[in-house]
Design a protein around this nucleic acid. Structure first.
Lengths: 208, 208
DNA sequence: ATAAAAATACCCTTAAAAGGGTATTTTTTT
DNA sequence: AAAAAAATACCCTTTTAAGGGTATTTTTAT
């Protein structure tokens, strides 16, 4: 039996993961927490094999919590479960000892894959992430299309509230180019609808 | 001399406040921190009269930090310095013992007013806040126009990524009504430009 | 009862953004 | 050298948001 604890700020996400894992016979959710403090209590008590860890949490954030867990219970695998890709966050989570990094807008089935992979001692990183974070031999685990350098730069500027024409001016591109990049980013990340890209860009900025 | 410490995640905001307070002869910034842990160290060491406290901070959040400070140094006045209005945050900061609550999109001069007011033993709350949080006799301190119930509801939905037509469907209003509300919210909060309202709504959601 | 505030809903225009293409040039990788 | 990927830039349409009004009804407070 794979025991799992979930630490997640947003109850809806907990519910979603719960719904998914509830019917997995080899996986059992032994604890849920809405903040880092609560999580640590649960982890100490239940000693789960895997922790699905939100990075952004009240009281104790995911990075701090991961550090504490890996120190106290080094065999516990931590999978970061974050709203969006954020370079600092990935770096810090890996440094803290996380075995995986999932994006919340990924299909929930990825959670299952990641759990099985980390209990086997492997790592699992979602693809919209910058692949330079993990060593070459892990590259094949990056399945989804990732954002190119330009795309990441533009995403950052979008997150700063810039419009396409402002970004075009900054980068000495035509507006068309930025709009093409926007469309490619949207396609690669699987976003839909008007505000989604801006939401992604803004939340990514804060999600660490 | 009024000694002030600033705890703030975003260096640019620290710089801004610093620039403002640098030329105030009766105010002296005795410490700056980028996270709650660092802040507590500084506060214990320097014992400032006033702490400008970001709510959302790494390691120890503003609410936890305020609780600790008010316990250890009850004469230290804490002014919450938050990106946006968030009911829970205001409530929790007041409970933790904060003497004031500023919004970051307020004019910087308000920081000065707030500092002087709290050292006199008074409170200072920014106006885009729901006035029901503070007692009637403090109402006159609420100067700016505040959002009405509908406006706050719509702001919440905007923050959830809903478009005007979706919000109209949810609330059984016409799209025109929602658009009018949007315009009024924008006007009341002093926002400008395309993504600003969405940015405000999204960030508000996370700022606690 | 009568102001004042809030909620409702429309008019207009403009500017983005998004969703759908195609296409060329440059850079990188094999 | 050839293929693949990234960056560039245009075409088209539709939707949404925003900035500028005006205006009626409903609710709340004095």
């Amino acid at each position: 039996m794979i025991t799992v604890a979930i630490a997640e700020d947003h109850q809806s996400l907990i519910d979603g993961v719960n719904l998914l894992l509830k019917y997995e016979e080899e996986i059992s959710i032994v604890g849920m927490a809405n903040d880092g403090e609560e999580l640590l209590k649960i982890v100490r008590l239940k000693q789960p094999k895997v922790v699905l860890m939100d990075i952004r949490m009240p009281k104790i954030d995911g990075i701090a919590a991961t550090n504490i867990i890996k120190k106290e219970l080094p065999y516990t695998k931590v999978i970061a479960f974050s709203m969006f890709d954020q370079e600092d966050a990935v770096r810090q989570m890996i440094d803290a000892g996380a075995s995986g990094y999932l994006l919340k807008n990924s299909p929930l089935e990825e959670v299952l894959t990641a759990i099985h992979q980390v209990v086997r001692g492997e790592t699992y990183f979602d693809a919209a992430l910058d692949p330079s974070f993990f060593s070459k031999d892990r590259k094949q685990q990056v399945k989804k299309q990732i954002l190119s350098k330009s795309e990441r730069e533009i995403l950052k500027l979008i997150g700063q509230g810039k419009t396409s024409s402002e970004i075009a001016a900054i980068r000495f591109n035509s507006v068309s180019t930025i709009e093409t990049h926007r469309k490619n980013i949207i396609r690669k990340l699987g976003l839909h609808g008007k505000g989604e890209l801006l939401r992604y860009a803004i939340e990514k900025k804060y999600d660490f």
